[in-house]
């Protein structure tokens, strides 16, 4: 099954005089185990593309198919279930729940995917351990460093073994060591779990884990980039 397939997708953001065509006629296929970088300047449509792939935004035209589900034909409930079971999301600032510990943030995703509570806890602990933050499992996000927080966010995105991982600027706020660790985690997820990983980024350091490097300019998907937008 193909994790992500987009055909002739368009999406406009805003209304009237403020309307901007954020994504124009994009066709993209990402296979299992593949890591794809989406690079482009701010406002180029990277985040909109991720939101379309996650089923958080609906395409104005074209089709988006995730793990065999055509999102334009799916109900809101079906799209939510898809995100619970087949999609992992990594946000730029982590997006972790501040009242939950690192472990519980990861557990939450596993439980949303339907895993039993005890099993979810075990999986969360194993994953946090493998990402080098096992010793911080009981801490809350605000007690973690930026790198630790992002690794917990990556653990949350991977714990339910999704077919598709969508990461938005996962290394933007990290130093080189932490950034490398997070990149390594995502690459490992692609190779070991067979997940398709799409990363929206400005960060050249991620090029070394990418199978494909796509440029996005004014909503148009282009050829591999030659320069950094960092």
């Amino acid at each position: 099954m193909i994790p992500l397939e987009m055909t002739s997708v368009c999406r406009t953001r805003g209304r009237g005089a403020h309307a901007v065509q954020a994504v124009r006629n994009i066709t993209l296929r990402v296979d299992p185990g593949e890591v794809v970088l989406l690079r482009g300047p701010s406002g180029s449509g990277k985040t909109t593309l991720l939101a379309l792939a996650a089923g958080l935004l609906a395409a104005d035209a074209g089709t988006v198919t995730v793990a065999g589900l055509r999102l334009d034909r799916a109900t809101e409930s079906a799209r939510r279930q898809l995100r619970q079971r087949a999609v992992g999301l990594v946000f730029q600032r982590g997006g972790l729940a501040s009242h939950l510990s690192a472990r519980d943030n990861v557990r939450l995703m596993a439980e949303l995917a339907g895993h039993p509570a005890r099993e979810s806890r075990r999986q969360a602990d194993l994953l946090l351990e493998s990402l080098g933050v096992g010793h911080r499992a009981a801490q809350r996000p605000q007690e973690l460093s930026g790198g630790e927080e992002m690794r917990v966010a990556v653990a949350r995105a991977l714990v339910h073994r999704p077919m598709l991982v969508l990461a938005d600027e996962p290394t933007a706020n990290l130093d080189s060591v932490s950034g490398a660790q997070v990149a390594e985690c995502l690459a490992r997820a692609a190779k070991l779990q067979g997940a398709a990983v799409v990363i929206a980024t400005h960060d050249d350091r991620l090029l070394r884990i990418a199978d494909r490097d796509l440029g996005l300019t004014d909503g148009v998907l282009g050829v591999p980039l030659l320069r950094s937008y960092g």
Partner: peptide, 15 residues
């Protein structure tokens, strides 16, 4: 105050 957190929870599938 927790807009972003709640939005993230919605995004990952909390309905």
């Amino acid at each position: 105050e927790q807009r972003r957190e709640l939005a993230a929870l919605r995004a990952i599938g909390v309905g």
